[in-house]
Design a protein around this nucleic acid. Sequence first.
DNA 1: GATAAAGTATGATAAATATCATATTTCGGA
DNA 2: TCCGAAATATGATATTTATCATACTTTATC
Lengths: 145, 145
Amino acid sequence: MLSNSSKYALTAVLYLAAHTDDRQKKMVKDLSASTNIPKAYLAKLLQQLSRHNIISATKGPKGGYYLTEENRNLPVYSLIEVIDGTQRMESCVLGIEECNAERPCPLHDHVYPARDAFLGTLKKMTIGDLSRDLKNGSSFLTAQQ
Amino acid sequence: MLSNSSKYALTAVLYLAAHTDDRQKKMVKDLSASTNIPKAYLAKLLQQLSRHNIISATKGPKGGYYLTEENRNLPVYSLIEVIDGTQRMESCVLGIEECNAERPCPLHDHVYPARDAFLGTLKKMTIGDLSRDLKNGSSFLTAQQ
DNA sequence: GATAAAGTATGATAAATATCATATTTCGGA
DNA sequence: TCCGAAATATGATATTTATCATACTTTATC
C-alpha cells in the first residue's frame, strides 16, 4: 500500500522518535544498522525528509538526525506525502479521474468507507503518538532476532 | 493501493461483466477502445486472467473474451491475487516480516482494523455484485465525455 | 482444407523505483 | 585555523513495472 521508500522512511523516523532528541542524535550509519535499511538509500530518504522539515539534522562532528518536539507532532501522513505524494493513497481505487459520490466507480461506495478510515488514521496519528508504544516496549520495528 | 496492472485488469473485467456473456463476447481491440487501456498491455493482462480461469475466452473468428456465471461469482480479490499477488495487500504496512498481534509494529493496532475491512470487502464482493450497479447506470467505469 | 480472425506465447523497449557511489558543504574540536 | 566527521547534492546503476511488437496457435466460415 505504501511504497518501499515510505516504509523505510517511516520505520527510520519512528526509530528516531524513540531514540533521539535535541541532544541525542543518530548518524545514518547507525540508523541503517539498527533498522536494516540500505545505508545509501536511507541517506537519500532522510535528506528528503530533512529538506521538508519532517525531521531535523545537524552536520559535522557530533551531528546526526533527530526529532524535535515539533517534528513529533506531525501526522504520520505528512511523511508519506513527502515521499510518495498524495496521489497514490487518495486517487480512485480504479484510477478513474472523475470518480466521486455523484459519479462513483463500481468500488466507490463499497470500499471508500474503509479506505477513508485507514487514511484518516494516518492523518490523525502523529509520529510521537506511535513512538510511545515503541518506547514502552509494546510495539516493535524489527523482527525478533 | 492497487498496481496499475490490477486497476486496468479490474476495470476491463467489470466492463466484461456488464457487456458480455456466453453469446456476446468482446475482442481486446474493442475492450481497449471502450476502457482507454493500452491494447497490447491489456492483452497481456487478459491472457494472465484467462490462464487462471478468472475470465473466459474463445479463439478464432467470432471469438473474444467474456464472463461465465462461474466467473461472475469470483470475488474481486481473486483477480488482484493473480495480477499483484497477495504480498502487496496483506503484508505489514511497514514491511516487517514478523508483525502480528503478539509482536505488532507501531501501526498495527491503529490501522489494521480499517485495512482489514477494506480487504474484507474485496474478498466478499464478487465481480457480478459490482457489475450490477454498472448495468443499471448507478456506477461508471470512465470519466464523463 | 484454405483463409482470416481471433486469442496465446514470448520477448523487446521504456519509464519508474530502488539502490549504490562520490564529491561537496558545514561544523566541532584539537 | 586546520582536520576530520557528519549531512547534502548529484548522478550512476540495477531492478521492477509498464508498454509495445511480433510470431504462433486455434477455430469459424467459405
